[in-house]
Amino acid sequence: MTETIKTDAIIIGAGPVGLFAVFELGLLDIKCHLVDILDKPGGQCAELYPEKPIYDIPALPVVTGQELTDQLLEQIKPFNPAFTFNEMVESVEKTEDGGWRIKTDAETVIEGKVIVIAAGGGSFTPKKPPIKGIEEFEGTSVFYAVRKMDQFRDKNILVAGGGDSALDWTLNLHPLAKSMQLVHRRDEFRAAPDSVNKMRSLVANDEMQLHTAQPIALHGINGQLQAVTLKSKERGEYDVECDTLLAFFGLTMKLGPVANFGLNLHENLIPVDTEKFETSTPGIFAIGDINYYPGKLKLILSGFHESALMAQQAFRYIYPDKKLRFQYTTSSSSLQEKLGVN
């Protein structure tokens, strides 16, 4: 059993809104620990559109998703937030002293006095091909990620996809696999050219097969895959034998375990008030794209505003005996000291 991490505010989601919450909470002397399923901060901005320009951040006429993330990280540096990446918060429970305890899918336990859900569109999870009956094979012969390579030793593998994940795993697993096939919808790949060249030379040497097609049906018994039907323009529908399918079609967002936290939900969003951005459960807040209130706009700037108001109420829970003073960073020497600029 790993040691319990203690903090003031547990922030679920390290996207732009979760990051800015660290700033607003930090000004009020509230320490933060962020948990994110991705391997890096920035949420959608870093995962979906790091290179895409955003035009509606106040005072930044244009900024890319990655630049915004980097700037926010710079801005919250003085508050030294802790991060747990690659993990998903699975459960939330109240502690004996009125705070909260969360547990992740990797058994990390964090205790805090408040929880701030800034989970955006939910957890990033692999896209699953909409093939009938695919669930029956998941975990036994259909996979969306490789955790232990050795699991795939001596398998007859079919990899589906045309990006870096698909190509990297094709190349990495090829030496272990009994046979390797790759299926992609067109004969062009957006993966790194070097990987594509390596794959093509394996194909040229008959060491693996490449199919320009799309998987449309799975065949097997008791969760054990035996063949996959592919559909191509040239060959129509045909079956290829394999016992393992690795599908890499990018990520999508799903609400995930947040749905089981015992909070009221409204069409997969978390209703909050517009004074404190608190959920139906006192001490649990929701800010950014994941919350809902009349007039809600899913804008990053709305999430920033929500962070500031949320922090006021979080302060009342964390420092019940202290008086909350509203101060400006331009004039307050104590705030400037926290920011390390004075």
Binding site: K127, P130, G162, G163, H184, R185, Q214, F249, G250
Partner: peptide, 11 residues
């Protein structure tokens, strides 16, 4: 757009 369609299904 063509590259992004690689992450779609039944294209």
């Amino acid at each position: 757009e063509v590259e992004m369609l690689d992450e779609a299904f039944e294209v």
